[in-house]
Amino acid sequence: MKQHNRSVSRVVYYILMFVIVFALFSLTIPGQFLSRFNLQSMAFQVPEFGILALGMMVAMLTAGIDLSIIANANLAGIMSAICLLKVTELYPNVGSLAIILVTVVVAVISGTIGGLFNGFLISVLGILPILATLGTMKLFEGLATVVTRGRPITGFPVEIQYIANETIGVVPVSFVIFLIVLVMVALFLKKTPLGFKIYMLGSNEEAARYSRLNNRAILLRAYAVSGLMAGIASIIMMSRFNSVKVGYGNSYLLQAVLVVILGGTNPDGGEGDVFNALFAILTLQCIASGFNILGFTDYMRNVIYGSMLIIVLMFTIMVPRIREMVKRKKETVSIS
């Protein structure tokens, strides 16, 4: 029972963190921060990066990492764009549904294949995840460059632009997609046998092997999911910029790692919660937008992310130490 309460209160911490940050900005710059424009633009910015962070999280739960996730997303976007333009060129009168279908299917398949390739290198060949995905990052980036010669691809049908730029009421379509993906990932991780096994494998790979789990298959699938997230994110990226190009979103890589760890995922594997990650993402978006209004650049966002990560890590390490010290003091007091 005790343990259960603690895991509940964790989410509360993250919600609290979000509320405090949100309130701080609302009080200091109420006019701009609480404006409909700002809130909406925040909702526009979260999805692509949030989905990539979810993919990163799945890899990190297995005690791995996916450095190739952005490159994979870019490649998926480019593949999808090329197929889409080919289709519209061959069949100029193709319907909206087909357009979206082609885009989504190609992006998702391409991303998943990229992820499977990572999984193959890691689980079958036994390469360390950090090295394997470092290599595939370069490889995916390179393939994308070769295919596009480094030039952007633009000019998509309006249906594509709709995904990331339209709203349902006041909520952006992309944000709704993000929430759906988030819930599905949460269900996958917490409510399916495979998700359960991913957590266990990440916590102790050897014990997993001795528990008759098929470690290879689990790792392969975990990285495929990571790749799938890259594929989904690529659709939103493609729609938001109305173009695809090698190197889009490269700065997301570090941010994705940071936000996942800020969200309480253990980089050594086996621990992490999707909803904690959600509130970490939202909090950071508030900070980014708030500082943006205050006139800081995007670069400052990186500074803040980096500093926050260090501070949060310090806290997570210092708090138990302080608790221990307090406990010891109490003990010595009671002895004397």
């Binding site: 950090i130 570090l254 790692v257 940071l258 760890i261 980089p267 050594d268 800081f296 650049t297 670069y299 400052m300 966002r301 990186n302 500074v303 803040i304 992310y305 980096g306 500093s307 990560l309 260090i310 890590l313 310090m314 390490i317 210092m318």
Partner: peptide, 26 residues
């Protein structure tokens, strides 16, 4: 001082160093 993953820490400091540079001199 904090025995945490060196990859994560240097990732964070890397963001801070590089971000500060570009913030101060865009």
């Amino acid at each position: 001082y904090f025995q945490i993953s060196a990859l994560i820490i240097t990732l964070a400091t890397s963001n801070v160093f590089y971000g500060l540079l570009l913030q101060l001199v865009p």
